[in-house]
Design a protein around this nucleic acid. Structure first.
Length: 555
RNA sequence: GCGCCCGUAGCUCAAUUGGAUAGAGCGUUAGCCUCCGGAGCUAAAGGUUACAGGUUCGAUUCCUGUCGGGCGCACCA
């Protein structure tokens, strides 16, 4: 990987000037500049070191540039620019050889080991098991699944988990709601609980229960538990299936009840107590999170002896750490951000590393149709589900739209636009480029032409070079997106790559009478196809070989 | 009242953890198919990055304050 060679080269340059220390080497930041005129890679190292070394940035930059080891296989001469940047440019030889390397690497192109095998777990969706998944869950599923793939591709040991909140008051309410629906179905009077779950799906669920058993259970004192257990089983399975169809799979579904049953909750409390951060007040047990940055201490065991939500959550994360997870990235809904500080502080109180827990808030989604907000209310049972969304706009399109935006910004999802099967829909743009390349390769094959590097040493068109440069950035884009936990950089890069390909295609005839040139351009096109396909795969979006324009349906 | 997120082109959003001349899509306007897929390409127009200060070589990014939008502020989850 180019990044490695640049870092090593800068280390050698520092050593040549007698400036090399491990601390300074760790300061090296390499980036791909926004402006093409600033080269293919750039570093601000001279400006960062200038003060410490006591030299003007530009003079330091000039010395570093001169001391940078020549590497004609990869780079041209190093340039000093602006207030003290060092800019690197790929050599012509490197660019000419890259498409062949991409074809050889194929599905592995873009992957790296920059994650150093760190064990990272992404916990996402973790919806309450009280009903179908909604559109925020759909957004979290798209982001979470993409993040897992991105981490895996960049050399992390990535795992995924879904935490099922199957303990506590709300699932009791669920059990009562289902029992009431079942009673209603068989004509037995039974009050529907106050604030119960109103959704129509519970009527369907009640109808699917084994009737004789349910009748027997209804009369017993344990009715709530029976209906709760059966409802949970069905609802969790339905969520799992919807997510799988959507392309979001999990290494494990962990149930909160299992954390209780294993004794981990009690053990966690005792461990906290041993750390001296638990005290009793007003009949309840409190954890001193204020010692670790929280605004106030938090109750972990209520006066009635039952734990609050926080304690099992601490226990769950403690359990993750004991299972070897080094970083836990949790994707939570916008209504949970008040919980971040208490949990982080609690985990620190328990002795876990400060950076163990990272929380990404997946912000709310406003569905827009006809310029109007689509109203959703879970209480009233009126909401658009993940399943609805897949049926309406298709899984590829839904995922593309969700991944285009950064997760922690509110999102207006334009259903009308997403449904449109034409050029106004940005989701098709990248897929179209892929299908177009596939088509070109098919056409070339009918003329007996295959990708090859016969013409690599010839004169290259600017658009060809521009495309190679764009493709060369792919590994670094993946690294950056994974490191920043920002999958949305992926579609942005792919849209740019597709545009770069289209420009190349417009200016450069691929299949022509010139056989070596045709082979070279076919190879370049195939390389672009591979990059687009690899990128879309990380997003969980398909890469069609062909696309049919959808039939326009007049409203 | 306190905390968190957000405020960037007419609309929806980017901007590579503080980098160089703030970019895309949609919409608008004007062009480009005897030729490998026109779901494409080219060009134009569109900005005091909500506002006021501060930090420094350099701020959309970090800090303080103000205004506006959203979400939290439980011995619910």
């Amino acid at each position: 990987m180019v990044w490695t060679e640049l870092t090593e080269g800068l280390g050698q340059a520092l050593a040549a000037l007698g400036l090399l220390t491990p601390e300074r080497l760790a300061l090296v930041e390499l980036a791909i500049p926004r402006e093409r005129a600033h080269g293919d890679w750039t570093t601000n190292l001279p400006m960062i070191l200038a003060r410490e070394v006591g030299r003007p940035p530009r003079a330091l930059a000039a010395d570093l540039a001169a001391a940078f080891p020549a590497d004609p296989e990869r780079f041209g001469p190093v340039e000093v620019a602006g207030p003290g940047f060092l800019n690197f440019r790929y050599s012509a030889r490197f660019l000419a050889a890259l498409p062949a390397r991409i074809l050889a690497a194929d599905a592995a192109f873009g992957r790296s080991d920059r994650g150093r095998n760190l064990a990272v777990q992404v916990e996402y969706v973790s919806a309450n098991p009280t009903g179908p998944l909604n559109v925020v869950n759909a957004r979290a599923a798209a982001v979470g699944a993409a993040l897992v793939r991105l981490l895996e591709a960049t050399g992390h040991r990535a795992t995924s988990e879904f935490y099922v909140n199957d303990a506590g008051g709300q699932v009791e309410l669920l059990g009562e709601s289902v029992a009431a629906r079942f009673a209603e179905r068989i004509g037995v009077p039974r009050a529907f609980p106050e604030n119960g779950y109103q959704g129509e799906y519970l009527r369907d669920l009640a109808a699917s229960l084994p009737e004789a058993e349910a009748r027997a259970a209804l009369g017993s004192p344990a009715a709530g538990a029976w209906f709760r257990t059966h409802a949970l089983e069905r609802l969790v399975e339905a969520q799992r299936r919807d997510l799988a169809d959507y392309g979001a799979t999990f290494d494990a579904f962990v149930r909160e009840s299992s954390i209780h049953d294993s004794g981990a909750v009690q053990a966690t409390l005792e461990e906290l107590r041993a750390k001296g951060v638990i005290y009793e007040a007003e009949g309840a047990q409190w954890v001193q999170t204020t010692r670790f940055g929280d605004d106030k201490d938090r109750v972990v065991v209520r006066a009635n002896g039952l734990p609050t939500y926080l304690l099992p959550d601490i226990a769950y994360h403690r359990d993750k750490r004991r299972r070897g997870v080094q970083v836990s990235i949790d994707l939570w809904g916008p209504d949970h951000h008040g919980h971040i500080l208490p949990l982080k502080a609690s985990l620190e109180a328990l002795g876990l590393e400060r950076g163990f827990l990272e929380v990404l808030i997946v912000q709310q989604v406003n569905l827009m149709s006809g310029g109007q907000l689509v109203k959703m209310s879970k209480r009233a049972g009126e909401f658009v589900t993940l399943r609805d969304l897949m049926d309406e706009v298709g899984p590829d399109c839904a995922k593309f739209f969700f991944l285009m935006r950064s997760a922690n910004a509110h999102l207006d999802f334009d259903l009308d636009l997403a449904k449109r099967q034409n050029d106004e829909n940005p989701a098709f743009y990248v897929q179209y480029a892929h299908a177009r390349i596939a088509s070109i390769l098919r056409y070339a094959r009918t003329r007996g032409l295959e990708p090859g590097d016969a013409g690599a040493s010839g004169e290259w068109h600017d658009q060809e070079l521009g495309l190679v440069r764009q493709l060369a950035a792919f590994p670094e884009v993946l690294r950056g997106a994974a490191a920043a936990r920002e999958p949305h950089r992926l579609p942005a890069y792919l849209m740019e790559t597709a545009a770069t390909f289209h420009r190349f295609y417009h200016e450069c005839r691929v299949v022509s009478e010139d056989v070596p040139l045709s082979q070279r351009r076919l190879q370049l096109s195939e390389a672009a196809r591979i990059v687009i396909r690899n990128g879309l795969a990380l997003m969980g979006v398909s890469s069609p070989e062909r696309m049919e324009r959808g039939v326009e349906v007049e409203p």
